[in-house]
Simulated assay, not measured.
Amino acid sequence: MSIDPAVYARLLEIADQLPKVPGIGKIEIADGQIVMMMSPVKRHELAVLRLSRQLNAQLPTTHPGHIAYHGADLQDAGLGRLRNPDLMVFPEATLEGEQRAVLPHEVLLVVEIVSKSNPENDYHDKVRDYSAMGIPFYLLVDPRTGTGVVHSEPGYESREKFAFGDTIAVGPWTLDTGSLLTYA
């Protein structure tokens, strides 16, 4: 599952030097490869916004000092992984640091909104990676089908499925999925 640290370091160098290409939203590193992700569609981004608002409203009570944020990379150099989740919950102070990415031990929740173009990545590869990183909760939201899955530790053995419209528990948080839209 992990790759040689020198290979991973070289992949990071290459990724940092890639030109910005219109339509390419994120660059990730997984399985010894640089993966260029397409820019998300509007309903994908709307789901991220609506879920982050709900989480940020609850975090002052459940985890003071934490935020639900959508712009940071997640890196596990030991596994040779650089991911850019759609949304993560971690301490706000993490953004003050000098490191290039959020580290897995800082993250309480990762959220991925399934893309139209590469759903296998979210359903298989990221389940494996986020579990291996030790992230307690992984919320998978699929606007293609109007469904989702709450994965929880250990090893994401617990998988609670839901349909858009359900109110779900994700660890200490409660999320109303009624405002999520399917892809047109």
Rank of each mutant, 00 (worst) to 15 (best):
K161D: 15
H105V: 08
V102Q: 04
E106F: 00
I113K: 00
S52C: 11
N118V: 08
L108Y: 07
D73M: 08
P64K: 00
M133N: 03
G146S: 10
S179A: 12
S179E: 13
P104R: 02
R144P: 04
G171H: 02
L74P: 07
S117Y: 05
V150Y: 02
D86T: 02
T174H: 03
Y130C: 09
T167M: 03
H44P: 07
V127F: 03
L59G: 10
H124L: 12
S152K: 01
V170F: 02
G178I: 07
S152P: 05
H151F: 13
T177M: 02
V48W: 01
R81V: 15
K116Q: 15
G80I: 06
A72V: 11
L87H: 07
Q75L: 11
H105D: 15
P119L: 11
Q54H: 07
I113H: 02
M88C: 10
P104E: 06
Q58K: 06
K42F: 13
L175P: 01
I168G: 07
K126D: 13
L140S: 05
E153T: 10
F137V: 06
I113T: 06
M38A: 15
H44L: 08
E106D: 14
M88W: 04
E157I: 00
H105N: 13
H44V: 07
G71S: 15
S115M: 08
L87K: 05
